Computed example of a mutant assay.
Amino acid sequence: MPDVIAERTLDLTLPNGTNESLRVRLWSPEYRPHAMCWEADVEVAGAGDAHKTHGVGIDAFQALQSALHLIPSMLVKYEDVGRLSWLDAEWLGFPEIKLTEP
């Protein structure tokens, strides 16, 4: 199994004021011969939940970009649960990535 290459801990403040930690992890891309593509796993875990998926690409760079693109959509469901923050700021440090040609 590939190594985790990046990890970030986010804070989730619930309406009752308690805090939970969410961990976002990204694994190094790995070539999957059966699928004839590269995949980079990404996971959001914490607050009693975990969701893992992967970005896909024709090379390792595209798989990484695809995985990074998925993170904001994986975090959306927590917006209904409470307030997400990173380093006491509302910006979580995951910018929108467009996967189309300029």
Rank of each mutant, 00 (worst) to 15 (best):
A45F: 06
D88R: 01
D3T: 13
V42L: 09
L99P: 10
D41M: 04
D3V: 11
E20G: 10
Q65Y: 08
A6D: 11
P102V: 01
N19G: 13
P72D: 05
G82F: 00
L26P: 02
V44Q: 02
G17M: 01
H51C: 10
L26V: 12
R83H: 00
A40F: 02
A60V: 01
T53Y: 03
E7F: 02
E101Y: 04
S85C: 04
K52M: 08
G48R: 00
L99T: 11
S21F: 05
P102Y: 00
L84C: 03
D88I: 02
R8M: 05
A63D: 14
I58K: 01
V4F: 03
R32H: 09
C37G: 07
Y78R: 00
W27C: 07
F61Q: 05
T13W: 05
T18Y: 10
V4W: 04
W38R: 06
G48W: 10
L68P: 15
H51K: 00
P33H: 04
L92Q: 11
T100L: 07
V42T: 10
D3N: 14
C37P: 01
V4T: 11
P33T: 02
D41L: 08
G82E: 02
L10R: 09
A67C: 15
W91Y: 02
G55V: 14
T9E: 14
H51E: 11
H54R: 05
E20N: 14
R83S: 07
E90G: 12
P33S: 08
D59I: 11
V81F: 00
K98H: 11
A47Q: 09
P95A: 00
K52V: 15
P33R: 02
T53S: 15
T53I: 13
R32A: 09
M36G: 00
V76W: 08
G57E: 12
E20D: 13
V44A: 04
W27T: 03
K77G: 12
E39C: 04
A67F: 05
Y31E: 12
